[in-house]
Simulated scan of single mutants.
Amino acid sequence: MSNRDAIVVENLTFQYPDTETPVLKNIHFTLKEGEVLGIIGRTGSGKTTLAMCLNRLVPTVIQGNLEGTISVFGQDISQRSVADMADKVGFVFQEPENQLSQMTVEEEIAFGMGNLGISREEMKYRIQETLKQVGLEGFEKRSPLALSGGQQQRLAIASVMAMRPSIMIMDEPTSMLDPRGKNEVYDVLRKIKTYGMTGVIIDHEVERMASYCDKILVLDDGEVIMFGTPKEVFSELTLLHEMEMNAPQVTELADRLRKELQIDVGSPITVEEAVKAFQIVSIK
């Protein structure tokens, strides 16, 4: 993992027109190149607005008053357009059908690359490579509308990945999916690190985020309440509960065991950590 800063957000405040209070308030955080950031928080806490600031959808398309600075790989993006940012920051939306517009799967993946001026030969190579990575080989001629929800979301991710952005942002990519679809998408998301991509994921799947993300940012009422490693954030159960959020189930279970049975297994945040912790306790 690189020591280079991928995203630096400083004093970021944003207010929509005709509203009384900002939706984002004095946001600060830094994400290193190759890290994956998970953003969690209650509905209306500002998660999606923050994500859209990172690729300039806010405030260039969705307008309002923005203060503070965002730097991407050392460059202030305040004068950049959404189109300018397309080769740096890719965005996958919550509902994939809103992002899919072409007649076939291969045309869908080619569409974004065409806007970047990628050569035809390079397009063919990237289409095949990306379809393999998302598990959609053989679907080239199929209509995106004929795909399942999980397949559509994987196609939306593939369309962004093919453009080779340095940063991939995903806004609740599994919220509309069944458990199988969620697993399919997270299997793909795990692969972005092999590209050295930096990731930003908004989701409610804290179990998956605990094992996948390098950093967690907790937003509440537009403010950063916590920012740190999954272990640091999900160990703060009292604070999470005050915001009507939960930690991973194994963390919640460990907390109850400690409080009700005086059995201390630490604060595991993944199933693997919990298994090891329980084995140590049983041996003692």
Rank of each mutant, 00 (worst) to 15 (best):
T104L: 11
Q152E: 10
T130R: 13
E252I: 14
I269E: 10
E108L: 12
I40D: 03
L155G: 12
E97Q: 10
N183D: 10
M170W: 06
I169W: 09
K276A: 13
I283F: 03
L237G: 07
E106Y: 11
D220R: 09
G46T: 09
L100I: 10
I39Y: 06
Q133C: 11
L240N: 02
I109T: 14
D214T: 04
M226Y: 00
L147E: 07
I109C: 14
N115C: 05
S78L: 05
P17R: 13
V224W: 04
P22Q: 13
M197Y: 07
T270C: 12
I201E: 11
I77N: 05
Q152W: 02
V36P: 02
V92Y: 13
D76H: 06
E207K: 10
G199C: 07
Y212G: 00
R126E: 15
E95G: 00
V23Y: 04
P17I: 13
M209T: 06
L54D: 01
I62T: 15
R180A: 00
P179D: 07
S2L: 10
E272Q: 15
K276T: 13
K47E: 10
G44T: 15
R164I: 05
V134L: 04
I225H: 01
L57E: 06
K284T: 11
C213D: 03
T49L: 00
D264G: 01
E207P: 11
I269V: 15
R190F: 03
I7Q: 02
P230I: 05
P165G: 02
K231P: 00
M243W: 09
L261Q: 07
T60M: 06
L239K: 06
V160K: 04
D264H: 05
S71Q: 15
S119P: 03
A156N: 11
P144I: 07
P59W: 06
V61R: 11
M163E: 01
E140Y: 12
V134T: 09
Y125K: 15
Q153H: 07
V61F: 14
K47R: 08
V185K: 01
L145P: 00
R190H: 08
I118Q: 03
I202T: 12
T69F: 05
A162F: 12
S78A: 11
T104Y: 09
S267Y: 04
V185W: 02
T198W: 08
I202V: 14
E97T: 13
I280G: 00
G266W: 09
M52P: 00
I283N: 09
L116G: 04
D255S: 15
I202C: 07
L37R: 00
E129C: 04
H241I: 02
N115H: 05
D18T: 11
R126S: 12
